[in-house]
Design a protein around this nucleic acid. Structure first.
Lengths: 207, 207
DNA sequence: ACGTTTGTGTACTGAACAGTAAACAACGTA
DNA sequence: TACGTTGTTTACTGTTCAGTACACAAACGT
């Protein structure tokens, strides 16, 4: 047999993700990753195939986290779907937590969508990054659209509205809060934007 | 007297902006800027004080362009304000043209907000970039809010709605389309998102 | 206890980087 | 036409970069 690893894979990828969030992909050197994760260069190349490999695996890990959260938060019976959607929007503005027990986000760099940030920086020249980022978004759109349909079945949202259109609209708005947050705006303002959007959803005209 | 410049300042800054859009700030080297603009290194440092100086002045130029466009598109009498808002939203999704005679945008990298892209990449560690980007957004929010108030006075939008909230909402959505566009989505989808948002604006209930 | 296998740390390499400095060119003036 | 001023070009410097190679360490089977 051989020598076992001394590092925790997820822990390393989380640290790398944090570093990429802070200084971007091109602004992060291999030495930065090495310092942030505690791994030496050799181990980094052996285990993750260098800088780009670390990014790919960090994004894959983010994708997994991202896909799990809405399944827990958005899925459920039609009764309560609108309220779950409401809760999800307010949370989503402040990011996807690393784990269930971690609070939503302390700073703004941790709140913005990792996939969105990477896609905007290097997606135009890195098809793989663009693909993973698009999948992250796609997963959320489907989950939100399904929740909208639940609210429609429950008589909370206008059944004539296109659920997928609404999902695109809401999630595009959430992505927008990432950018606006990068301008230095108060997080409370971002919450308010999400609230305003929720308030504008087409409700059934109760008579 | 002295030797005159052989380059056009705006032309150089536009070329640099295009380069920064394509490969980001950290992904762009001084040689890249030199190649894109045709200026030698020495001239770049003499006239713009290096890479960061070029970025600052390119962003300042973008800010000026940005501030002029909504003044032309959004300003006007209350009658027609809603329609001007509608037109602005659909245009804004596809970017700010370099000049009046240039079509909106050919590719997605030219369509996304330059200030937003820079803010998301380096705004967290570059206060000056963050400040200019925030000002870009602020100018637009004020212009859109004023247009919303016009539409309210004209009886097209619910006068009880908070015009500034709506402006934040709409512009955050536009910023979101920049990110979603970076995922590789069809521009038509982005237009549709803007249309959906416009359709959700709180209209006065005409009786 | 030894040897094989795999993880880890470090030293190295050539390339690319930002920024500088000095030689050179073009212009108006005197 | 000679000079002073300013733009332009090119060569150079020290640093940082990504990636590699190699020596060392730890585990387990024999």
């Amino acid at each position: 047999m051989a020598r076992p690893r001394t590092f925790d894979r997820d822990h390393v990828l989380h640290a790398a993700e944090r570093q990429f969030r802070e200084s971007g992909y091109n602004g992060t050197s291999v030495d930065d990753i090495s310092a942030a994760t505690g791994l030496g260069r050799g181990s980094l190349y052996a285990a993750f195939d260098g800088k780009h490999g670390v990014l790919m695996q960090a994004m894959a890990g983010y994708f997994d986290r991202l896909g799990n959260v809405p399944a827990k938060v958005l899925a459920g019976p039609d009764d309560g779907a609108l309220e779950r959607l409401h809760g999800y929007l307010l949370r989503a503005v402040h990011g996807v937590p690393l784990a269930d027990d971690v609070p939503p986000a302390s700073d703004r760099t941790a709140a913005a969508c990792f996939a969105g940030k990477m896609a905007l920086e290097i997606g135009a020249s890195d098809a793989e990054v663009q693909r993973i980022a698009a999948e992250c978004f796609s997963v959320l759109v489907m989950a939100v659209a399904e929740c909208v349909r639940g609210a429609q079945r429950n008589g909370d949202i206008d059944p004539d509205a296109d659920a997928e259109d609404l999902a695109y609209l809401l999630l595009t708005l959430i992505r927008g809060t990432d950018v606006v947050g990068a301008y230095g705006h108060d997080p409370a303002r971002l919450t308010q934007i999400a609230e305003s959007a929720f308030a504008l959803l087409p409700r059934v005209s109760r008579r």
